[in-house]
Design a protein around this nucleic acid. Structure first.
Length: 832
RNA sequence: GCGGGGGUGGCGAAAUGGUAGACGCGGGGGCCUUAAAAGCCCCUCCGGGCAACCGGGUGCGGGUUCGAGUCCCGCCCCUCGCACCA
């Protein structure tokens, strides 16, 4: 037989058990020959787009975490197909990016040679897993035929004014030697390698995602997405309502006073802060600027210049991790004062690193009485702390031992005409008052920043821009796309902040597309997240090379019906995809503005107490399991080990249970009798099982669906009985999404010549599923005292009579029940 | 600190406010077999009891309810995000 028999702990196929290696190979071949998994993109009725997040094809190959996610999606797709949909389940490879490039550098091989090997290995494993993928529509982001259109997307954004280049303080990873998006910086460290991120000033390309903040937030209301994902997006967008308040700066420098024009018109203000608590303006006793704030130099008095400069240098040298983790307050006084527009008082202006340049305006009004950080700072530097809100019953002059931040039920004090106004009310009232004096403006502030998309690396699509001294940056004409990434040997990045492509003059010197003069190609490549921000648009049109996405296919297949993926992409990939889709919609390229109608986040596989990852060294390669147990058993085990949306513990011990279930299924079908009639009790259980497996599969509750099939199997073979074909046939159909190869083989054994995937879902008959007798739980005072078998539709009186006839019940009912609670079909509770 | 998800047998886990522990793993006993494997049957939350049964039990403390793993209030712990966000 096969190598199965050579392995010590693998089940040896006998007449009682099936040989997965043989039948899985047989069906994978047959699917390919018959085109079973091919989707009729043009004409298939009732389309259902079952999308899974495409993998990065690592050199280690597919791991169990990938397979867990893909299997979960495949079951859902197959289930929808059995329900009568034309299901499209495509696959692709997210093969550009730092991850691939770093690996290539490590092993000293060029990514252009390395990646195709990885892709081939992944493809082999994905096929082995029996996924219902239509390989004719596979995409690879590193294929010029694909990234031609990634570049096209960039050009669209550029034309719409949504791509711009600016010199900016950016997150620089000194290990990866590239710029990172804010979303890729976790607690001040590179999310990829954990190296502390530095600030650098570099010219970078950005996408104006912040223009879409409000819409990205509002649309969340209407999306059928996992709640956890929606929450993550809301938090990331970080909308807060408040006011911008303008403060006039007094001395020491007279030029300051008129230096900044305001969009409020006269009078001119000097310093703008953002606050969510305008109601506390009367308690603003000092101000703080971020050390990097551009106004710092001009407002610093001559005698403070040295200490201010020293502090700024110190901050710049500090790594961001230390700045964010180490919360001890530090700061220096600038020597200048500003006028509090509410009180008219002069308040000192400080600089301190607890105020961040990249949120709000980079400056705050400090209200130490009602903010933890300001309180701490004021205490340290002996700045005045004033109470301006108080809860009910607390006098206005009550001292503050700690900041009072609770605004529920509190009212203003020491705030002139606003004394007594509730905090909730005062937020608006004070803003209106300041507005009327030209000192404030109600604003909504977002945490979401523009998306930095340039990367000073090699392994990505070149940004399709040509710089010209006369014409400025010009997009590469669409007819000249793609800008092909050249095959260069020296692709290693350095820390100059300049891409490796900038070393290749022959590549980057090109004529300006506008004036024909000497131009210079942009030598940065784009962020990998741009590749994946539109791939779902490409799949249905992957056979077209003249358009990024064909109108007919797009209208038919998009937006994506069901998307399943990891929640680690809740704020990166999913946010960017929504943004790109919105932009393309606004430009008239798409008929919808939200790409994923339904999204479900799957859980993660834990092994040895940790999430499976390469760094933890607890990765499991599925090949061994395919070989030892078969793809069907392995798929089913992964789905059985815990709820799909929560994940679970991976351990070898559990696999034997599902393998044994499949063996028993095999035997049940092989031995099934054709003569005689099926058993009515078994048929009842069968219909109950059809209902439960359908309901559970539809809500991704795969573990309980499998449990229900096992339960039915126990009924079917109880006492070694020989089941009837009519009893087993539907079970083969129910198991098909989970264990497609065995299901096909058994379906054939049952006399069918077409695929089980084209056989539909078995019909559920409510009448046949109904129990005539039920076990009614009988409680006395809420405590279970017994169960009685009664007709399903028994009336309350009859149920009470039957219950009282039971000694176990009667002995606890010492007096006539005061109350009877009867839940038909479930329970009877006698209260005495 | 803020937000999400959790805490149930030896283990993975089930339970629209209605019989806690389905299903599976592991463990124990039995049938079949020359033997093994496979298959089949029974037992397996804890304590007491020969048994029928009785008592206790879903992180901790309260509450609502005829009835709470499930709802409410107050805590503890684990886990994943975010985090000096003004």
């Amino acid at each position: 037989m096969t190598r199965l028999s050579a392995s010590s702990d693998a089940p040896v196929p006998t007449h009682d058990s099936y040989d997965p290696t043989a039948i899985e190979a047989k069906w994978q071949t047959r699917w390919r020959e018959r085109g079973t998994n091919e989707t009729d993109i043009a004409a298939g009725p009732n389309p259902f787009y079952a999308l899974m997040m495409f993998p990065y094809p690592s050199a280690e190959g597919l791991h169990v975490g990938n397979l867990f996610a893909f299997t979960g999606n495949d079951i859902y797709g197959r289930f929808q197909r059995l329900q009568g949909h034309t299901v499209f389940e495509p696959m692709g490879f997210d093969a550009f990016g730092i991850h691939s490039e770093n690996y290539a550098l490590k092993v000293g091989e060029h990514p252009m040679r390395l990646i195709p090997r990885n892709v081939a290995n992944f493809t082999r494993q994905l096929k082995r897993a029996g996924l219902m993928i239509d390989w004719r529509y596979a995409v690879d982001t590193t294929d010029p035929a694909y990234y031609k259109w990634t570049q096209w997307v960039f050009v669209q954004l550029f034309r719409k004014g949504l791509a711009y280049r600016k010199e900016a303080a950016v997150n620089w990873c000194p290990a990866d030697k590239t710029v990172l998006a804010n979303e890729q910086v976790i607690a001040g460290a590179c999310e990829r390698c954990g190296t502390k991120v530095e600030q650098r000033f570099l010219a970078q390309w950005f996408f104006r995602i912040s223009n879409y903040a409000e819409r990205l937030l509002d649309n969340l209301e209407h999306l059928d997405w996992s709640e956890t994902t929606l929450t993550a997006q809301r938090n990331w967008i970080g909308r807060s309502e408040g006011a911008e308040i303008h403060f006039v700066v007094r001395g020491p420098s007279s030029e300051v006073r008129t230096s900044r024009s305001s969009d409020l018109g006269a009078p001119t203000s000097d310093l703008v802060v953002f606050t969510t608590r305008p109601d506390t303006i009367f308690g603003a006793t000092y101000m703080v600027l971020a050390p990097e704030h551009p106004l710092v130099v001009r407002i610093t008095s001559p005698d403070r210049r040295d200490s201010v400069q020293a502090y700024r240098d110190d901050t710049a040298r500090q790594d961001i991790v230390a700045r964010k983790i180490n919360r001890e307050k530090t700061g220096v006084f600038t020597g200048s004062y500003a006028v509090n527009p509410a009180t008219g008082a002069d308040i000192p202006i400080w600089i301190a690193d607890y105020v961040l340049m990249d949120y709000g305006t980079g400056a705050i009004m400090a209200v130490p009485g009602h903010d933890e950080r300001d309180f701490e700072f004021a205490t340290l530097f002996h700045l005045p702390i004033v109470r301006v809100t108080a809860p009910e019953g607390v006098p206005a002059d009550a001292p503050l031992a700690e900041p009072f931040v609770d605004d529920e039920g509190a009212h203003l004090v020491n705030s002139a005409q606003f004394d007594g106004t509730s905090v909730a009310h005062a937020k608006r009232k004070v803003t209106e008052w300041l507005e009327s004096r030209g000192a404030a403006k109600a604003v909504v502030n977002f945490r979401l920043h523009d998306w930095c998309i340039s990367r000073q690396r090699y392994w990505g699509p070149p940004i399709p821009i040509i710089h010209c001294d006369h014409c400025g940056p010009q997009p590469v004409p669409e007819k000249d796309l793609p800008v092909v990434l050249p095959d260069i040997p020296d692709f290693r990045p350095d820390d100059t902040g300049i891409s490796p492509l900038a070393r290749h003059e022959k590549w980057y010197v090109v004529p300006c597309p506008k004036c024909g003069g000497t131009g210079r190609r942009e030598t940065d490549v784009s962020d990998t997240f741009l590749d994946s921000a539109w791939y779902f648009l490409r799949y249905p049109s992957a056979d077209r090379d003249d358009v990024p996405f064909a109108p007919e296919a797009t209208r038919k297949w998009l937006p994506v019906t069901s998307y399943i993926g990891g929640n680690e992409h809740a704020v990166l990939h999913l946010m960017y995809s929504r943004f790109i889709t919105m932009v393309l919609h606004d430009m008239g390229h798409l008929h919808f503005e939200e790409p994923f109608t339904r999204f479900r986040a799957h859980g993660h596989i834990i092994r040895e107490g940790a999430k499976m990852s390469k760094t933890k060294g607890n990765i499991v390669n599925p090949d061994r399991y395919f070989e030892q147990w078969g793809a069907d058993a392995f798929r089913m085990y992964l789905m059985f080990l815990g709820p799909f949306q929560e994940g679970g513990d991976f351990r070898d011990a559990g696999i034997s249970g599902v393998r044994s279930f499949l063996n028993r299924l095999w035997l049940a079908v092989v031995d099934a009798r054709k003569d005689g009639t099926p058993d009515a009790d078994v048929l009842r259980k069968m219909h109950q099982t059809i209902r439960k497996v359908g309901d559970d599969t539809a809500r991704l509750s795969y573990n309980t669906a499998i449990a229900a099939m096992m339960e039915y199997m126990n009924t079917l073979r109880k006492g070694d009985r020989t089941p009837h074909q009519d009893e087993v046939r539907p079970l083969v159909q129910l198991v098909a999404p989970y264990a497609p190869h065995v299901a096909e083989e058994l379906w054939e054994k049952l006399g069918n010549s077409s695929s089980v995937m084209d056989g539909g879902w078995p019909a559920f008959d409510a009448a046949l599923a109904r129990e005539e007798f039920i076990q009614l739980a009988v409680q006395v005072n809420g405590k279970l005292r017994g169960t009685i078998s009664v007709p399903r539709d028994i009336a309350q009186d009859a149920a009470v009579t039957a219950a009282m006839a039971e000694h176990q019940v009667a002995k606890f009912v010492t007096s006539p029940p005061r109350k009877v609670v009867f839940v038909p079909g479930r329970l009877l509770n006698l209260v005495v």
